Deep mutational scan, measured.
Amino acid sequence: NKFNKELGWATWEIFNLPNLNGVQVKAFIDSLRDDPSQSANLLAEAKKLNDAQA
């Protein structure tokens, strides 16, 4: 379904953000699993944090 596809894509993108540490990645992935409907918002937050830590 739509959420599974978005969840998978967001998970892959978060895993590939180079400036996040393992704890941050795990926290974002756990949040995605808790509420897949928020995948776009969580991915945006992860990208912002990644950019801030560059």
Rank of each mutant, 00 (worst) to 15 (best):
N1Q: 09
N1Y: 03
N1K: 05
N1R: 02
N1T: 06
N1D: 13
K2N: 15
K2L: 13
F3G: 08
F3R: 01
N4S: 08
N4T: 08
N4A: 06
N4K: 04
K5S: 15
K5M: 10
K5W: 14
K5Q: 14
E6T: 05
E6M: 05
E6N: 11
E6Q: 07
E6A: 05
E6C: 11
L7G: 03
L7W: 12
L7P: 08
L7C: 06
L7Y: 12
L7R: 02
L7A: 10
G8T: 14
G8Q: 15
G8W: 15
G8E: 15
W9Y: 13
W9R: 07
W9L: 13
W9C: 09
W9A: 12
W9T: 08
W9I: 13
W9G: 05
A10V: 15
A10M: 10
T11C: 12
T11K: 10
T11D: 07
T11Y: 14
T11E: 15
W12S: 09
W12A: 11
W12M: 07
W12R: 10
W12H: 10
E13M: 12
E13Q: 12
E13T: 07
E13G: 03
E13L: 10
I14Q: 04
I14K: 02
F15N: 11
F15T: 12
F15S: 12
F15Y: 14
F15A: 14
N16L: 12
N16V: 04
L17M: 10
L17P: 00
L17Q: 02
L17S: 01
L17H: 01
L17D: 00
L17K: 01
P18N: 06
P18M: 05
P18L: 05
N19T: 02
N19F: 15
N19M: 06
N19D: 03
N19H: 14
L20N: 00
L20E: 00
N21F: 05
N21Y: 05
N21A: 07
N21E: 08
N21W: 08
N21P: 01
N21R: 05
N21G: 06
G22V: 12
G22S: 12
G22F: 13
G22M: 15
G22L: 13
G22D: 14
G22I: 13
G22P: 15
V23E: 15
Q24S: 01
Q24P: 01
Q24Y: 01
Q24E: 03
Q24L: 02
V25F: 04
V25I: 13
V25T: 03
V25K: 15
V25D: 00
V25E: 01
V25A: 06
V25W: 03
K26I: 09
K26Q: 14
K26A: 06
K26C: 07
K26H: 07
A27N: 13
A27E: 12
A27R: 10
F28C: 02
F28Q: 00
F28M: 02
F28A: 01
I29Y: 05
I29K: 02
I29R: 02
I29T: 04
D30C: 09
D30F: 04
D30K: 13
D30S: 11
S31E: 09
S31V: 07
S31N: 10
S31Q: 14
L32F: 04
L32T: 01
L32H: 01
L32D: 00
R33H: 12
R33C: 10
R33T: 10
R33V: 10
R33E: 07
D34P: 02
D34L: 13
D34H: 15
D34K: 14
D34N: 15
D34W: 06
D35Q: 08
D35L: 05
D35S: 09
D35E: 04
D35A: 05
D35N: 13
P36D: 02
S37N: 11
S37V: 04
S37F: 07
Q38Y: 03
Q38V: 04
Q38H: 06
Q38L: 08
Q38R: 12
S39N: 06
S39K: 08
S39T: 14
S39W: 15
A40S: 10
A40V: 10
A40R: 11
A40P: 06
N41E: 13
N41Y: 13
N41P: 06
N41W: 07
N41V: 14
L42Y: 06
L42M: 05
L42A: 05
L43D: 01
L43I: 10
L43G: 00
L43S: 02
L43Q: 02
L43R: 03
L43E: 02
A44F: 10
A44K: 11
A44R: 09
A44D: 12
A44N: 09
A44M: 11
A44C: 11
A44W: 08
E45N: 03
E45I: 11
E45A: 07
E45H: 06
A46G: 01
A46M: 07
A46P: 01
A46N: 00
A46Y: 06
A46C: 03
K47C: 06
K47P: 01
K48L: 10
K48I: 12
K48R: 14
K48G: 06
K48N: 06
K48E: 08
K48Y: 04
L49Q: 05
L49M: 09
L49I: 11
L49E: 02
L49T: 03
L49G: 00
L49V: 07
L49D: 02
L49N: 03
L49A: 05
L49P: 01
N50E: 02
N50S: 10
N50D: 03
N50M: 01
N50G: 01
N50C: 02
N50Q: 01
D51T: 08
D51R: 10
A52Q: 12
A52P: 01
A52W: 09
A52G: 07
A52K: 11
A52N: 08
A52E: 12
A52R: 12
A52M: 15
A52I: 11
Q53Y: 07
Q53V: 06
Q53A: 04
A54Q: 11
A54S: 11
A54N: 11
